[in-house]
Simulated assay, not measured.
Amino acid sequence: MNQSPQFPPLFSGEAVRNHMDPFDKAVSRAIAGVDSGTIFYSEAVNTLRAALVLAPETSLEEAIQAVYVAQIGLAESLGALAPPEVPVHFQWPDRIKVNGAVCGSVRFAADVSDPRAHPNWLVIGIDVPFMLLSDEPGENPNQTCLHEEGCVDITPMALLESWSKHTLLWLTYFMDSGFERVHNEWRPRCDTLGKMIDRPKPGVFVGLDEKGRMMLRQGVMTETVSLIEFAEHL
């Protein structure tokens, strides 16, 4: 019998059946009024799928910056549990990369879409594959899993526990001192910064502004793209 993961103070966990999506469960429970800090998670052994419910006290434009917090929490968790030579990076807006290949993602949803509106809830989910469904390693060189990258000693529940602790720590920093500290931690882990990108649209990824929006340069023009545009519409 699996031992239930241990969560830090202010967070609690609820397992969902393997055929259920923890993100969908989190959204439905958030709509019903579940406590902020509840993490819904799958107990599957081949992947970590979990979703955290938050009840922001700010506008959506500020609250959505917590997505970066969740990414940092995941990177720090992998940094603590994985072999030291395994690099973890981000690809804006929602990809996690291990050893240069995509190895997971984040997703998010809120009950409002207007940046100035105050959401009742924000759900941030993570999905990290431990094993690939394909029998052919290297079949897609841009996709990987933790086991292929030498992280065979990490279990989904251990990563979940670590993610919850690191994410809570960075949420505290975020709430205490705003986005700047989060931005400073996130920036060096983004491997497309300063480079020409195709997604979400072609341009040079200049960086993030003070509100966490992507600054994308196209010729002499620079436009901003918000994470809000990538929130899941319910």
Rank of each mutant, 00 (worst) to 15 (best):
residue 196 M to H: 15
residue 137 P to E: 12
residue 155 T to P: 06
residue 139 E to K: 12
residue 140 N to M: 08
residue 178 G to W: 03
residue 167 T to I: 02
residue 142 N to T: 11
residue 163 W to K: 01
residue 160 L to W: 06
residue 169 L to V: 07
residue 183 H to A: 04
residue 186 W to P: 02
residue 154 I to W: 07
residue 147 H to T: 12
residue 158 A to Y: 02
residue 189 R to D: 05
residue 190 C to R: 02
residue 180 E to I: 01
residue 197 I to F: 11
residue 193 L to H: 10
residue 152 V to L: 14
residue 171 L to T: 00
residue 155 T to C: 06
residue 183 H to R: 13
residue 165 K to N: 05
residue 143 Q to I: 09
residue 175 M to S: 08
residue 155 T to Y: 08
residue 182 V to H: 02
residue 187 R to G: 00
residue 152 V to S: 13
residue 169 L to Y: 12
residue 141 P to N: 01
residue 143 Q to W: 10
residue 178 G to S: 03
residue 191 D to Y: 07
residue 198 D to Y: 14
residue 194 G to V: 13
residue 173 Y to C: 02
residue 142 N to M: 11
residue 176 D to H: 03
residue 173 Y to T: 05
residue 196 M to N: 14
residue 192 T to N: 15
residue 189 R to I: 04
residue 189 R to Y: 06
residue 158 A to I: 03
residue 156 P to G: 06
residue 153 D to G: 07
residue 147 H to D: 10
residue 167 T to A: 00
residue 137 P to Y: 10
residue 148 E to W: 11
residue 164 S to W: 05
residue 189 R to A: 10
residue 136 E to L: 14
residue 192 T to R: 15
residue 157 M to C: 00
residue 193 L to V: 09
residue 167 T to P: 00
residue 189 R to G: 04
residue 185 E to Q: 13
residue 171 L to Y: 01
residue 142 N to V: 07
residue 148 E to R: 13
residue 185 E to N: 10
residue 184 N to Q: 14
residue 176 D to W: 00
residue 175 M to K: 12
residue 154 I to V: 12
residue 163 W to H: 04
residue 145 C to H: 05
residue 189 R to V: 05
residue 155 T to D: 05
residue 172 T to E: 09
residue 155 T to E: 10
residue 159 L to A: 10
residue 185 E to R: 14
residue 150 G to I: 13
residue 175 M to F: 08
residue 186 W to N: 04
residue 186 W to Y: 15
residue 168 L to F: 03
residue 146 L to C: 12
residue 175 M to N: 12
residue 146 L to G: 06
residue 142 N to Q: 13
residue 139 E to N: 08
residue 144 T to V: 05
residue 147 H to F: 14
residue 155 T to R: 12
residue 145 C to W: 07
residue 165 K to T: 03
residue 139 E to V: 09
residue 176 D to Q: 08
residue 154 I to Y: 08
residue 179 F to A: 02
residue 172 T to S: 04
residue 147 H to S: 11
residue 161 E to S: 09
residue 172 T to L: 03
residue 141 P to H: 01
residue 189 R to M: 15
residue 189 R to P: 03
residue 174 F to G: 00
residue 168 L to A: 03
residue 153 D to F: 06
residue 190 C to W: 02
residue 171 L to W: 02
residue 198 D to E: 15
residue 149 E to A: 15
residue 185 E to L: 12
residue 192 T to E: 15
residue 176 D to C: 01
residue 192 T to M: 15
residue 170 W to V: 00
residue 157 M to W: 01
residue 197 I to S: 09
residue 160 L to K: 06
residue 141 P to Y: 02
residue 185 E to G: 04
residue 183 H to F: 07
residue 153 D to C: 07
residue 165 K to L: 04
residue 153 D to S: 13
residue 180 E to F: 01
residue 158 A to Q: 13
residue 187 R to D: 03
residue 170 W to H: 11
residue 140 N to S: 05
residue 175 M to Y: 10
residue 184 N to P: 00
residue 179 F to W: 05
residue 189 R to F: 05
residue 168 L to R: 04
residue 161 E to G: 07
residue 179 F to N: 02
residue 149 E to F: 12
residue 155 T to Q: 09
residue 179 F to I: 03
